[in-house]
Design a protein around this nucleic acid. Structure first.
Lengths: 112, 112
DNA sequence: CTCATATACAACCATTTGGTTGTAGGTTAC
DNA sequence: GTAACCTACAACCAAATGGTTGTATATGAG
């Protein structure tokens, strides 16, 4: 199974995009169902343009995509990008796991 | 099993901290083995103070911890915080999975 | 004791971020 | 056709970020 890893630049954008509660909420809502930008904007205590910028940041990170439907822009969460971020974190955890594994080996060696 | 979830503020800090290639590299290195701040600083093309700031950002996020050892400060990666971030991403993916599951139900219903 | 090393931290600066308002262009409803 | 709606985007601003240099302090080596 080929997994397209995040480039450093993409990883920066993805984590940066996730580092904001409003944007995480947008991701949640757009994963749950398709939502227009104006529907999103109605939910937050900020201007339409501000929400637009959040959506743009998420789109640049690949965490959501937008498609035109009439005069609306429908926003969809992109689970694949979430998964890529998960994989990056898993690779970090794996580094630690391997270190513990080496430590176990060392201790086992000490028993001999 | 009780899992201490990240607060919104903590989540912001964790993802913000991960949104930088140098900081991700510091996390990798300190998960692999304990490293002093000056050892870290030697690896990157920036001032000692700059690396210090990166470590401080990671420490504030709970992604590393520092302990004094003589005149050095030893930096350790904190796998638990990585795991919390993974769980947050998993909860996002789960939202999507449930949506797909509802869609499947709907399609199955259509067959009746 | 003295010197070199390791760190902490303040002050400063350029750039980025996250918000605002204002203007303009499509699309839908009536 | 016209008014209302949805979006795009530019210009602007304050605050945060990510770097710098400089100074001070604590520890270890010889």
């Amino acid at each position: 199974m080929v997994v397209y890893e995040l480039s450093e630049e993409q990883a920066n954008k993805v984590f940066r995009a996730l580092a904001d509660a409003t944007r995480r909420d947008i991701v949640r809502r757009t994963l749950r169902a398709e939502v227009s930008v104006s529907e999103l904007a109605a939910s937050y205590d900020m201007s339409f343009a501000a929400v637009q910028k959040h959506v743009a940041a998420l789109e640049a990170a690949g965490l959501v995509s937008k498609i035109a439907r009439g005069r609306e822009r429908i926003v969809r969460g992109q689970p694949d990008t979430i998964r890529h971020a998960q994989e990056l974190l898993s690779s970090l955890e794996e580094i630690w796991r391997q270190r513990i594994s080496r430590l176990d080996d060392f201790l086992a060696d000490g028993d001999k």
